[in-house]
Design a protein around this nucleic acid. Structure first.
Length: 382
DNA sequence: CATACGTGGGC
DNA sequence: TGCCCAAGTAT
C-alpha cells in the first residue's frame, strides 16, 4: 500500500537540482575507478563503480559521521586496497585499523563477509548482499545504488528525519519502519537512484539537520508538512531513552621486574570484542576498590597482587552504560597469569602498547601510564 | 520488538 | 559537565 501522493517528479527534480550545486560530491569512494560503462556514458550516470571501497565506507558510516570515519577509510584503503587483501588480512590488523571507530563487530563482520564472498563476482541483488554479515537493508541499498546505480531505497538516520518532517509524522519512526521504507521506496528516483539516494542523505546531513533545520535553504520547503505546521524542530519524535546503568570498574596495571605491563585480549564476542585491555572488573557493592582489583585479577588471571598507588580515574560513557575506571598500579606477589577470562595475555613494554588495538578508555590509561613513567624518568620498582 | 553495541563532536 | 546525536545490524 504505497502512498505516493506526496512524491512527485517535480520534488525529485528539485532535490537533484539542489544536490548538483550543494551536495557532497567529494566522497572518495564515489570518485574511484569506474569499472564499467553502461549503454550511455558518464553523463548518463550509467557507469559502475568498484563496490569494495563503497562497501568499506558504508560499513564505517553505520552510526558514524563522515568526518569521523574519513581518515579511517583512507588508511584502510592504503592497507587493504582490495577484497583479496581483506580476505587474507589477520583479525589483529583489522581491529587495529578499526581502533577508535567503535562498534567493533563491524570490522569482524566485514572480514567474515569478505571471506564468505571469496572470489565470487560482486552480488547484484538485495538478498545476496543482506545475507552477508554486517549488511542490513540500508547498507545493501546504499552499495547497490552507489556502485551499480540500481534502484534500491535506503533508510538511514538522515532519510528517516527528512521523511518524518516531510510527513509531519507524530510517532517515533522506530514504530513504523515498514511505512518509512515504503516512503523511501516511493520517493526514489528510479532513473538515477545513485544520485537520488545520495541527495536525500545530503539533504538530511546538511539542511534537514537535527535541532534547528535550515528550512530557508531547503529545496523541499513547499512540500514539507512539518514546516507548514512549524513543528520541524520537534521531529522526528524520539522514544524515551532508558537510564543507562552506572558501574565502577577496578583496573590493575600489573608490572613485572622487567618493567613490562600485563594486558589481555578480550573474547571476540560482545562488548569491545577482540580488543586488548588492562585487566580488571566491576566493583561489587560494599567492596573497596583494592579488593575489587585483587579479586578480579585472581579470578581472571589466577594471580595474587598487591594493589598500589592510583594512576588515574576516568569516566567513560558507552551507548548503553556509564563506567568509572579506577586504575591502580599493582605488584604481582604470586602465581603465573593465565587467560582464564580472555583469549590471551601478554607482557609488553609500555612503549610497545601502541601496537595493540585498545578501546578509547584504555587509550587514556596508556597515556597516563606513559606520562607516569616519564615523570619518574624510570621504571618504578614496586 | 527491545536491546546490545563505541565514539567524538556539538551545544 | 552532561546529554544528544550520527550513513544500523544482529539477536
Amino acid at each position: 500500500m504505497l502512498d505516493t501522493r506526496f512524491f512527485s517528479d517535480e520534488m525529485r527534480k528539485q532535490l537533484l537540482e539542489w544536490w548538483q550545486i550543494h551536495g557532497r560530491h567529494d566522497l572518495p569512494w564515489k570518485r574511484g575507478d569506474v569499472i564499467s560503462l553502461g549503454a550511455s556514458d558518464l553523463q548518463g550516470n550509467t557507469f559502475e563503480l568498484d563496490p569494495y571501497p563503497i562497501w568499506v565506507a558504508e560499513v564505517m558510516l553505520q552510526q558514524t559521521q563522515l568526518n569521523v570515519m574519513l581518515p579511517y577509510w583512507k588508511r584502510w584503503m592504503l592497507e587493504l586496497p582490495t577484497r583479496a587483501d581483506l580476505i587474507f588480512a589477520c583479525l589483529d590488523k583489522i581491529l587495529f585499523l578499526w581502533k577508535g571507530l567503535g562498534y567493533y563487530s563491524r570490522a569482524r563482520r566485514l572480514h567474515q563477509a569478505a571471506i564468505q564472498l571469496g572470489d565470487e563476482p560482486w552480488p547484484r541483488t538485495l538478498d545476496a548482499w543482506m545475507s552477508l554479515p554486517g549488511i542490513g537493508r540500508t547498507t545493501a541499498g546504499s552499495i547497490l545504488s552507489s556502485a551499480f546505480n540500481l534502484p534500491f531505497p535506503i533508510l538511514d538516520g538522515n532519510v528517516t528525519r527528512v521523511l518524518a518532517r516531510l510527513q509531519a509524522f507524530s510517532m517515533p519512526p522506530i514504530k513504523a519502519k515498514t511505512l518509512f521504507w515504503s516512503w523511501s521506496e516511493a520517493l526514489l528516483d528510479r532513473e538515477q537512484p545513485r544520485d537520488f539516494n545520495q541527495a536525500l542523505m545530503d539533504l538530511g546531513a546538511l539542511i534537514c539537520i537535527p535541532g534547528k533545520p535550515q528550512c530557508f535553504l531547503c529545496p523541499w520547503q513547499e512540500h514539507c508538512s512539518a514546516y507548514s505546521y512549524g513543528c520541524q524542530s520537534k521531529l522526528p519524535v524520539k522514544g524515551k531513552a532508558r537510564e543507562s546503568p552506572y558501574k565502577v570498574i577496578g583496573v590493575g596495571i600489573v608490572l613485572n621486574e622487567l618493567g613490562e605491563v600485563l594486558i589481555d585480549q578480550r573474547h571476540n564476542e560482545g562488548l569491545l570484542g577482540g580488543l586488548w585491555e588492562f585487566p580488571g572488573g566491576k566493583q561489587d557493592p560494599g567492596e573497596t576498590i583494592q579488593a575489587t582489583i585483587s579479586r578480579e585479577l585472581k579470578e581472571e588471571l589466577d594471580i595474587e597482587v598487591e594493589v598500589g598507588e592510583e594512576l588515574i580515574v576516568l569516566n567513560h560513557s558507552y551507548s548503553h552504560m556509564k563506567l568509572c575506571f579506577v586504575v591502580r598500579l599493582c605488584r604481582m606477589i604470586a602465581g603465573r597469569p593465565k587467560p582464564l577470562a580472555s583469549q590471551q595475555i601478554r607482557w609488553v613494554q609500555p612503549e610497545d602498547l601502541d601496537q595493540y588495538a585498545f578501546p578509547a578508555a584504555n587509550a587514556k590509561i596508556i597515556s597516563a601510564l606513559l606520562e607516569y613513567f616519564q615523570d619518574k624518568n624510570s621504571i618504578p620498582i614496586l
